[in-house]
Design a protein around this nucleic acid. Structure first.
Length: 104
DNA sequence: GCCATGGCTAGTA
DNA sequence: GCCATGGCTAGTA
């Protein structure tokens, strides 16, 4: 059975609405984890290891400044197309306009 | 650049 | 051991 913090993060991820994105740290905060990079790391780990298993909307998570965290060949292109398909607004080629499409 | 953090998972015994 | 962060700092231009 996963730890409490893991369950909270999974819950928050499952609630990310279509057409909106949130940052790694933002997810951690919504899950009630302590502030700081540690929580964001937890989110990173969960997304990379459990996205398939739990059918998580991994593409709706980006860096704090809106940039796509994935590199070329790591799924960046797929993430971009999935986000665009949801109508997410971009401020730059690989940077989401957080003002418009960031979760508030 | 560098460093902090923590639970999962694959792989071994 | 791994992991798709994030904040701060030293070092360069």
């Amino acid at each position: 059975m996963p730890a409490e913090s893991t369950m909270m993060i999974l819950e928050v991820l499952r609630c990310l609405p279509f057409g909106k994105v949130a940052s790694y740290g933002g997810i951690a905060e919504m899950a009630g984890l302590p502030e700081g990079a540690a929580g964001a790391r937890q989110v990173v780990r969960i997304l990379s290891s459990m996205s398939r298993k739990y059918d998580l909307p991994w593409w709706r998570v980006v860096k704090k400044d809106g940039r796509i965290a994935l590199g070329e060949g790591e799924g960046r292109d797929l993430q971009l197309s999935l986000l665009k398909a949801e109508g997410v607004e971009f401020a730059e080629p690989v940077r989401v306009d957080m003002k418009r499409s960031g979760l508030r």
